[in-house]
Protein backbone atom coordinates (compact mmCIF):
# COMPACT_ATOMS: atom_id res chain seq x y z
CA UNK A 1 0.00 0.00 0.00
CA UNK A 2 2.81 2.36 -0.64
CA UNK A 3 1.74 3.73 -3.97
CA UNK A 4 -0.54 6.68 -3.81
CA UNK A 5 -3.27 6.71 -6.34
CA UNK A 6 -5.25 9.78 -7.04
CA UNK A 7 -8.72 9.45 -8.32
CA UNK A 8 -11.11 11.90 -9.85
CA UNK A 9 -14.20 10.01 -8.83
CA UNK A 10 -13.89 10.80 -5.16
CA UNK A 11 -17.67 11.09 -4.95
CA UNK A 12 -18.11 7.39 -5.37
CA UNK A 13 -15.57 6.48 -2.78
CA UNK A 14 -16.85 8.48 0.11
CA UNK A 15 -19.94 10.39 1.01
CA UNK A 16 -19.90 13.70 2.76
CA UNK A 17 -20.35 12.42 6.28
CA UNK A 18 -18.23 9.44 5.54
CA UNK A 19 -15.08 7.95 6.82
CA UNK A 20 -11.79 9.68 6.94
CA UNK A 21 -9.61 8.31 4.19
CA UNK A 22 -7.26 5.52 4.96
CA UNK A 23 -4.03 7.12 6.02
CA UNK A 24 -1.19 5.77 4.00
CA UNK A 25 1.90 4.85 5.91
CA UNK A 26 4.70 5.66 3.56
CA UNK A 27 3.25 7.81 0.81
CA UNK A 28 5.62 10.48 -0.44
CA UNK A 29 2.90 12.79 -1.77
CA UNK A 30 1.26 15.28 0.55
CA UNK A 31 -1.91 14.13 2.37
CA UNK A 32 -2.20 10.86 0.54
CA UNK A 33 -5.56 9.14 0.71
CA UNK A 34 -6.11 5.77 -0.82
CA UNK A 35 -9.58 5.60 -2.36
CA UNK A 36 -11.54 2.95 -0.56
CA UNK A 37 -13.00 1.37 -3.64
CA UNK A 38 -9.65 1.07 -5.36
CA UNK A 39 -8.37 -0.78 -2.32
CA UNK A 40 -11.53 -2.88 -2.08
CA UNK A 41 -11.06 -4.24 -5.59
CA UNK A 42 -7.32 -4.94 -5.50
CA UNK A 43 -6.71 -8.50 -6.49
CA UNK A 44 -5.89 -9.73 -2.99
CA UNK A 45 -9.00 -8.07 -1.54
CA UNK A 46 -11.61 -8.77 -4.15
CA UNK A 47 -12.86 -12.05 -2.67
CA UNK A 48 -13.19 -10.54 0.81
CA UNK A 49 -14.93 -7.54 -0.68
CA UNK A 50 -17.47 -9.61 -2.54
CA UNK A 51 -18.15 -12.32 0.04
CA UNK A 52 -17.67 -10.32 3.24
CA UNK A 53 -18.92 -6.99 1.95
CA UNK A 54 -21.31 -7.09 -0.96
CA UNK A 55 -23.01 -10.41 -0.28
CA UNK A 56 -24.34 -9.45 3.18
CA UNK A 57 -25.04 -5.92 1.97
CA UNK A 58 -27.14 -7.18 -0.93
CA UNK A 59 -28.96 -9.64 1.34
CA UNK A 60 -29.76 -6.89 3.85
CA UNK A 61 -31.02 -4.51 1.17
CA UNK A 62 -33.10 -7.30 -0.38
CA UNK A 63 -34.71 -8.21 2.94
CA UNK A 64 -35.60 -4.57 3.47
CA UNK A 65 -36.73 -3.84 -0.08
CA UNK A 66 -38.53 -7.07 -1.02
CA UNK A 67 -41.70 -6.44 1.06
CA UNK A 68 -41.97 -2.92 -0.37
CA UNK A 69 -41.49 -4.14 -3.92
CA UNK A 70 -44.00 -6.94 -3.33
CA UNK A 71 -46.49 -4.35 -2.07
CA UNK A 72 -46.06 -2.19 -5.17
CA UNK A 73 -46.39 -5.11 -7.57
CA UNK A 74 -49.35 -6.69 -5.78
CA UNK A 75 -51.23 -3.41 -5.80
CA UNK A 76 -51.40 -3.72 -9.61
CA UNK A 77 -52.46 -7.36 -9.68
CA UNK A 78 -56.06 -8.41 -10.25
CA UNK A 79 -57.63 -10.45 -7.45
CA UNK A 80 -57.25 -13.70 -9.42
CA UNK A 81 -53.46 -13.32 -9.47
CA UNK A 82 -53.36 -12.75 -5.72
CA UNK A 83 -55.56 -15.62 -4.62
CA UNK A 84 -53.49 -18.21 -6.39
CA UNK A 85 -51.28 -21.08 -5.25
CA UNK A 86 -48.47 -20.11 -7.63
CA UNK A 87 -48.14 -16.35 -8.02
CA UNK A 88 -45.97 -14.71 -10.65
CA UNK A 89 -43.54 -11.96 -9.82
CA UNK A 90 -44.82 -9.63 -12.49
CA UNK A 91 -48.56 -8.98 -12.93
CA UNK A 92 -49.79 -10.88 -16.01
CA UNK A 93 -52.69 -8.54 -16.40
CA UNK A 94 -51.79 -5.27 -14.65
CA UNK A 95 -54.73 -3.25 -13.45
CA UNK A 96 -55.44 -0.16 -11.41
CA UNK A 97 -58.71 -1.66 -10.17
CA UNK A 98 -57.33 -2.02 -6.64
CA UNK A 99 -56.88 1.72 -6.33
CA UNK A 100 -60.43 2.26 -7.57
CA UNK A 101 -61.63 -0.24 -4.98
CA UNK A 102 -59.82 1.63 -2.17
CA UNK A 103 -61.65 4.76 -3.31
CA UNK A 104 -64.88 2.80 -3.30
CA UNK A 105 -64.51 1.51 0.27
CA UNK A 106 -63.33 4.74 1.89
CA UNK A 107 -63.77 8.33 0.66
CA UNK A 108 -60.21 8.24 -0.60
CA UNK A 109 -59.79 11.76 -1.97
CA UNK A 110 -61.25 13.20 1.20
CA UNK A 111 -59.15 10.98 3.46
CA UNK A 112 -55.98 11.79 1.55
CA UNK A 113 -56.79 15.50 1.74
CA UNK A 114 -57.47 15.19 5.48
CA UNK A 115 -54.04 13.65 5.95
CA UNK A 116 -52.40 16.43 3.93
CA UNK A 117 -54.24 19.15 5.87
CA UNK A 118 -53.61 17.61 9.29
CA UNK A 119 -49.93 17.09 8.44
CA UNK A 120 -49.40 20.57 6.99
CA UNK A 121 -51.29 22.49 9.65
CA UNK A 122 -50.07 20.36 12.56
CA UNK A 123 -46.43 20.33 11.48
CA UNK A 124 -46.51 24.00 10.47
CA UNK A 125 -47.77 25.20 13.83
CA UNK A 126 -45.51 22.83 15.74
CA UNK A 127 -42.38 24.02 13.96
CA UNK A 128 -43.40 27.66 14.44
CA UNK A 129 -43.98 27.11 18.16
CA UNK A 130 -40.71 25.22 18.47
CA UNK A 131 -38.80 28.11 16.87
CA UNK A 132 -40.37 30.83 19.03
CA UNK A 133 -40.13 28.81 22.23
CA UNK A 134 -36.51 27.87 21.65
CA UNK A 135 -35.67 31.50 20.84
CA UNK A 136 -37.36 32.73 24.01
CA UNK A 137 -35.56 30.12 26.12
CA UNK A 138 -32.16 31.06 24.73
CA UNK A 139 -32.29 34.80 24.05
CA UNK A 140 -34.96 36.36 26.26
CA UNK A 141 -33.54 36.60 29.77
CA UNK A 142 -36.28 35.98 32.30
CA UNK A 143 -35.96 34.32 35.69
CA UNK A 144 -37.02 30.69 35.80
CA UNK A 145 -36.47 29.92 32.13
CA UNK A 146 -34.24 26.99 32.99
CA UNK A 147 -37.00 25.53 35.16
CA UNK A 148 -39.38 26.00 32.24
CA UNK A 149 -36.96 24.20 29.96
CA UNK A 150 -36.76 21.34 32.45
CA UNK A 151 -40.56 21.15 32.40
CA UNK A 152 -40.47 20.87 28.61
CA UNK A 153 -37.78 18.21 28.84
CA UNK A 154 -39.94 16.12 31.17
CA UNK A 155 -42.86 16.51 28.76
CA UNK A 156 -40.63 14.87 26.18
CA UNK A 157 -40.69 11.72 28.29
CA UNK A 158 -44.47 11.49 28.50
CA UNK A 159 -45.69 8.97 25.94
CA UNK A 160 -48.68 10.43 24.10
CA UNK A 161 -50.54 7.19 24.80
CA UNK A 162 -50.42 7.91 28.53
CA UNK A 163 -52.26 11.19 27.92
CA UNK A 164 -54.77 9.70 25.52
CA UNK A 165 -57.79 9.13 27.73
CA UNK A 166 -57.85 12.56 29.45
CA UNK A 167 -57.20 14.28 26.13
CA UNK A 168 -60.09 12.36 24.63
CA UNK A 169 -62.34 13.72 27.37
CA UNK A 170 -60.98 17.27 26.98
CA UNK A 171 -61.35 17.34 23.22
CA UNK A 172 -64.82 15.79 23.44
CA UNK A 173 -65.85 18.46 25.95
CA UNK A 174 -64.57 21.16 23.57
CA UNK A 175 -66.63 19.65 20.77
CA UNK A 176 -63.59 18.43 18.85
CA UNK A 177 -64.58 14.80 18.59
CA UNK A 178 -64.71 13.58 15.01
CA UNK A 179 -63.17 16.82 13.68
CA UNK A 180 -59.84 17.59 12.05
CA UNK A 181 -58.93 20.24 14.61
CA UNK A 182 -59.63 17.65 17.28
CA UNK A 183 -56.85 15.55 15.70
CA UNK A 184 -54.40 18.45 15.52
CA UNK A 185 -54.92 20.41 18.74
CA UNK A 186 -53.62 18.11 21.52
CA UNK A 187 -50.42 17.36 19.62
CA UNK A 188 -49.44 20.98 19.04
CA UNK A 189 -47.40 21.47 22.19
CA UNK A 190 -43.95 20.53 21.03
CA UNK A 191 -41.16 19.34 23.28
CA UNK A 192 -38.99 17.57 20.69
CA UNK A 193 -38.59 20.53 18.32
CA UNK A 194 -38.08 22.98 21.17
CA UNK A 195 -35.37 20.79 22.64
CA UNK A 196 -33.55 20.36 19.34
CA UNK A 197 -33.72 24.01 18.30
CA UNK A 198 -32.70 25.25 21.73
CA UNK A 199 -29.49 23.26 21.34
CA UNK A 200 -28.98 24.76 17.89
CA UNK A 201 -29.65 28.35 19.01
CA UNK A 202 -27.34 28.02 21.99
CA UNK A 203 -24.53 27.07 19.65
CA UNK A 204 -24.86 30.31 17.67
CA UNK A 205 -22.13 32.91 18.23
CA UNK A 206 -23.44 35.54 20.60
CA UNK A 207 -21.94 38.44 18.61
CA UNK A 208 -24.33 37.64 15.79
CA UNK A 209 -27.35 38.53 17.88
CA UNK A 210 -25.64 41.26 19.86
CA UNK A 211 -24.76 43.14 16.68
CA UNK A 212 -28.40 43.16 15.70
CA UNK A 213 -29.35 44.25 19.18
CA UNK A 214 -27.01 47.25 18.90
CA UNK A 215 -28.63 48.07 15.58
CA UNK A 216 -31.85 48.38 17.51
CA UNK A 217 -33.54 45.27 16.14
CA UNK A 218 -36.21 43.91 18.47
CA UNK A 219 -36.53 40.27 19.41
CA UNK A 220 -39.03 39.56 16.68
CA UNK A 221 -36.70 40.91 13.98
CA UNK A 222 -33.63 39.28 15.52
CA UNK A 223 -35.45 35.95 15.43
CA UNK A 224 -36.68 36.06 11.85
CA UNK A 225 -33.87 37.96 10.15
CA UNK A 226 -30.89 36.43 11.91
CA UNK A 227 -31.43 33.46 14.20
CA UNK A 228 -33.92 31.54 12.06
CA UNK A 229 -32.11 31.98 8.71
CA UNK A 230 -28.73 30.85 10.02
CA UNK A 231 -30.39 27.88 11.74
CA UNK A 232 -32.27 26.80 8.64
CA UNK A 233 -30.73 23.31 8.37
CA UNK A 234 -31.77 22.48 11.94
CA UNK A 235 -35.24 23.89 11.33
CA UNK A 236 -35.60 21.84 8.16
CA UNK A 237 -34.59 18.74 10.11
CA UNK A 238 -37.19 19.41 12.79
CA UNK A 239 -39.81 20.16 10.13
CA UNK A 240 -39.17 16.95 8.21
CA UNK A 241 -39.25 14.74 11.28
CA UNK A 242 -42.45 16.46 12.41
CA UNK A 243 -44.08 16.06 8.99
CA UNK A 244 -43.25 12.36 8.87
CA UNK A 245 -44.58 11.80 12.39
CA UNK A 246 -47.80 13.70 11.71
CA UNK A 247 -48.38 11.81 8.48
CA UNK A 248 -47.88 8.43 10.16
CA UNK A 249 -49.78 9.28 13.35
CA UNK A 250 -52.35 6.60 14.00
CA UNK A 251 -53.45 6.00 17.58
CA UNK A 252 -54.82 9.44 18.43
CA UNK A 253 -56.77 9.97 15.17
CA UNK A 254 -58.08 6.41 15.57
CA UNK A 255 -59.46 7.32 18.99
CA UNK A 256 -60.91 10.73 18.20
CA UNK A 257 -62.40 10.12 14.71
CA UNK A 258 -65.57 8.15 14.03
CA UNK A 259 -66.80 8.93 10.54
CA UNK A 260 -64.89 7.88 7.41
CA UNK A 261 -64.99 11.35 5.86
CA UNK A 262 -62.97 12.76 8.77
CA UNK A 263 -60.37 9.98 8.85
CA UNK A 264 -56.72 10.43 8.05
CA UNK A 265 -55.03 7.92 5.78
CA UNK A 266 -53.76 5.50 8.46
CA UNK A 267 -57.18 5.40 10.14
CA UNK A 268 -58.90 4.97 6.78
CA UNK A 269 -56.56 2.06 6.03
CA UNK A 270 -57.43 0.51 9.38
CA UNK A 271 -61.07 0.66 8.32
CA UNK A 272 -60.17 -0.76 4.92
CA UNK A 273 -58.34 -3.58 6.64
CA UNK A 274 -61.34 -4.51 8.76
CA UNK A 275 -63.51 -4.59 5.61
CA UNK A 276 -61.15 -6.42 3.28
CA UNK A 277 -58.76 -8.72 5.09
CA UNK A 278 -61.32 -11.47 5.68
CA UNK A 279 -61.95 -11.75 1.97
CA UNK A 280 -58.27 -12.04 1.07
CA UNK A 281 -58.48 -8.91 -1.09
CA UNK A 282 -54.86 -8.07 -0.46
CA UNK A 283 -54.51 -6.21 -3.74
CA UNK A 284 -56.79 -3.53 -2.35
CA UNK A 285 -54.89 -3.42 0.94
CA UNK A 286 -51.57 -3.13 -0.91
CA UNK A 287 -52.95 -0.23 -2.94
CA UNK A 288 -53.88 1.42 0.34
CA UNK A 289 -50.42 0.74 1.76
CA UNK A 290 -48.83 2.29 -1.36
CA UNK A 291 -50.84 5.48 -0.79
CA UNK A 292 -49.58 5.94 2.77
CA UNK A 293 -46.03 4.69 2.23
CA UNK A 294 -44.88 6.00 -1.14
CA UNK A 295 -45.22 9.75 -0.36
CA UNK A 296 -42.99 9.34 2.70
CA UNK A 297 -40.59 7.13 0.76
CA UNK A 298 -40.22 9.83 -1.92
CA UNK A 299 -39.61 12.59 0.63
CA UNK A 300 -37.14 10.34 2.42
CA UNK A 301 -35.26 9.48 -0.77
CA UNK A 302 -34.83 13.17 -1.57
CA UNK A 303 -33.99 14.47 1.91
CA UNK A 304 -32.68 11.42 3.73
CA UNK A 305 -29.67 13.16 5.22
CA UNK A 306 -31.83 15.65 7.14
CA UNK A 307 -34.34 13.04 8.25
CA UNK A 308 -31.72 10.55 9.41
CA UNK A 309 -29.91 13.32 11.28
CA UNK A 310 -33.09 14.37 13.04
CA UNK A 311 -34.22 10.89 13.94
CA UNK A 312 -30.88 9.73 15.27
CA UNK A 313 -30.45 12.98 17.22
CA UNK A 314 -28.77 12.43 20.54
CA UNK A 315 -26.88 9.41 19.31
CA UNK A 316 -24.21 11.21 17.38
CA UNK A 317 -22.44 13.65 19.55
Amino acid sequence: MSTVTRTTSAATSRDADGAPGTPSTTGPAPAPTQPEWRRAFRRENVVATLVGGYLPLVIAVLIIAAPLVWMLIASFKPASEIVTPDPTLWPQDPTSANYALVADRVPLARVFLNSVVVTAVGAGIKVLLAITTAYALVFVRVPGRNAIFLGILVALMVPPEAAMLPNYLTISALGGRDTLWGIVLPGLGTAFGTFLLRQQFRALPLELVEAAELDGAGHWRRLWSIVAPVSLPAIVTVALVTVVNEWNNFLWPLVIIDSPENMTLPVGLNLLRSIESQTGAYGVLMAGAVLVIVPVLLVFALLQRHIVAGLTQGAVK
Binding site: M71, A74, N248, F250, L265, P266, L285, G288, L297
Partner: peptide
Amino acid sequence: AVFAPYVLSGVGVGLIWLF
Protein backbone atom coordinates in the same frame (compact mmCIF):
# COMPACT_ATOMS: atom_id res chain seq x y z
CA ALA B 1 -32.39 1.71 1.95
CA VAL B 2 -31.89 -0.05 5.27
CA PHE B 3 -33.02 2.99 7.23
CA ALA B 4 -36.12 3.60 5.11
CA PRO B 5 -38.63 1.31 6.92
CA TYR B 6 -38.04 3.29 10.11
CA VAL B 7 -39.79 6.36 8.67
CA LEU B 8 -42.70 4.49 7.10
CA SER B 9 -46.24 4.37 8.45
CA GLY B 10 -46.66 1.46 10.86
CA VAL B 11 -50.14 0.96 9.43
CA GLY B 12 -48.81 0.61 5.89
CA VAL B 13 -46.01 -1.69 7.04
CA GLY B 14 -48.52 -3.80 8.98
CA LEU B 15 -50.67 -4.21 5.88
CA ILE B 16 -47.71 -5.34 3.77
CA TRP B 17 -46.68 -7.98 6.27
CA LEU B 18 -50.26 -9.10 6.80
CA PHE B 19 -50.20 -10.11 3.16
